[in-house]
Simulated scan of single mutants.
Amino acid sequence: MEAGGRAVTAFGRSRTRPPTGWRRIVVRLPIALYRIGLGPVFGKRMLLLQHTGRVSGQTREVCLEVVAHDPLRGSWTVASGFGTAAQWYRNLRHIPKVTIQVGRTFHPVNAHFLSAEEGAELMAAYAGRHPRAARALCRYLGLDDPKDGTDPFRAAGLRIPFVRLDEVPPRRWG
């Protein structure tokens, strides 16, 4: 998807652009809540990703919904609803070592980009846990009507890029 433009999905419907104006303010409101210490309000459902701009070199922040979390492995999986054109996604491609904040806890992580098939499995599992949210996301992105009769969530997962954020193990001194 071009920045500021519209893209046509594989299902033939146009996908919305990233929000601007007052909608952008509403979408970025969770970042402000994290900054004033209210990150725990989101529980483990959202995280704040702090990454480095690939051009500016400045620290950037984006609040993302957690699609999957593995506490034993220390990993969080997020999706780029605006595809590979999302600025945070492009920045992670350039510099995959980032920091996330979940609640009040900061975690250094490395970004790993998942295959389309892994994305399909994740989206199908997410739809099982959060069916209304999954339907709304697919509808918003124009990914809710595959013509070939396949599961719409698996089909959406094949097209949405997913990123697994693996916690960097702490150094052992001794």
Rank of each mutant, 00 (worst) to 15 (best):
R6T: 03
R6L: 15
R6P: 09
R6G: 04
A7Q: 03
A7N: 07
A7S: 11
A7V: 01
V8F: 10
V8I: 15
T9V: 07
T9F: 13
T9M: 11
T9W: 09
A10G: 13
A10D: 06
A10F: 13
F11Q: 11
F11R: 11
F11H: 15
G12S: 14
G12W: 14
G12R: 15
G12T: 10
R13I: 01
R13C: 07
R13P: 10
R13K: 15
S14F: 15
S14K: 14
S14P: 04
S14R: 15
S14G: 02
R15T: 02
R15N: 04
T16A: 11
T16I: 10
T16V: 09
T16Y: 07
T16K: 10
T16H: 08
R17G: 09
R17H: 08
R17A: 08
P18D: 03
P18R: 06
P18Q: 04
P19N: 00
P19R: 06
P19D: 00
P19C: 04
P19V: 05
T20C: 04
T20G: 09
G21L: 01
G21V: 06
W22G: 03
W22V: 01
W22P: 02
W22H: 11
R23P: 05
R23Y: 06
R23L: 10
R23A: 14
R23T: 09
R23Q: 06
R23C: 00
R24I: 04
R24T: 04
R24Y: 11
I25G: 09
I25L: 14
I25Q: 07
I25A: 12
V26Q: 05
V26N: 05
V27E: 05
V27D: 07
V27N: 04
R28V: 01
R28L: 14
R28W: 11
L29E: 10
L29M: 12
L29R: 03
P30Y: 02
P30D: 00
P30K: 12
P30L: 02
I31S: 02
I31P: 05
A32I: 03
A32V: 11
L33I: 00
L33C: 08
Y34S: 01
Y34Q: 08
Y34T: 06
Y34M: 08
R35E: 05
R35Y: 04
R35V: 10
R35Q: 13
R35W: 12
R35F: 08
I36N: 06
I36C: 15
I36T: 00
I36V: 15
G37S: 14
G37P: 00
G37V: 07
G37T: 01
L38G: 02
L38C: 13
L38V: 09
G39F: 09
G39Q: 03
G39P: 05
G39A: 10
G39L: 00
P40S: 14
P40G: 08
P40F: 15
F42C: 12
F42P: 00
F42I: 06
F42D: 05
F42T: 09
